[in-house]
């Protein structure tokens, strides 16, 4: 049986009908076509599906879509405003923190949640904030540099 679901995603409201067993990630990707949120493991380990829900970073593969009813969701598609990249996105480019790019949307969302709560993090706090996100390419150094760089830019 399907149930009504009202989702606020990137400041747009969607009225949907979903099955109880559907997770938030699959609804974002398959029902809304927001494929920036990635599927990596579906077991909560990789963080590629990270989105921000009511200000908190969460793994969208481990959340029932129906649990997100009425909540504000921010996905990577909602990071830029009026075609202007978010400082985090700019820093990821500038610092070459992207290789294959598969982990990048999740990294950006974890980093955004971190900076929203802690605008001036230490390197260790950045590493802790990104701990739930796995990258198989970069070795993390450039990603951490990018987040610190973005924090500095936002602070100015």
């Amino acid at each position: 049986m399907k149930y009504p679901l009202k989702l606020h995603v990137n400041q747009r409201t969607y009225n949907l009908e979903v099955y109880p067993s559907q997770n938030l990630r699959d609804v974002l990707r398959e029902e809304l076509g927001l494929t920036g949120t990635k599927e990596g493991c579906s077991t909560g380990n990789c963080g590629a599906c990270t989105v921000i829900m009511n200000g908190m970073s969460v793994k969208s593969c481990l959340i029932l879509a129906l649990q997100a009813d009425g909540k504000e969701i921010l996905t990577v598609e909602g990071l830029s405003t009026n075609g202007q990249l978010h400082p985090l996105q700019e820093s990821f480019i500038d610092k070459q923190a992207v290789q294959c790019g598969y982990c990048t949307p999740g990294m950006l969302m974890s980093a955004k949640a971190l900076l929203d709560q802690n605008p001036n993090p230490t390197e260790e706090e950045v590493r802790d904030g990104l701990h739930g996100n796995i990258c198989r390419c970069t070795g993390y150094v450039k990603i951490v540099e990018a987040v610190l760089d973005a924090a500095e830019k936002i602070g100015q």
Partner: peptide, 12 residues
């Protein structure tokens, strides 16, 4: 708690 999973796991 800082050693339980990651921020995302602890948030929910």
């Amino acid at each position: 708690f800082s050693g339980i999973g990651s921020v995302q796991v602890r948030n929910w």
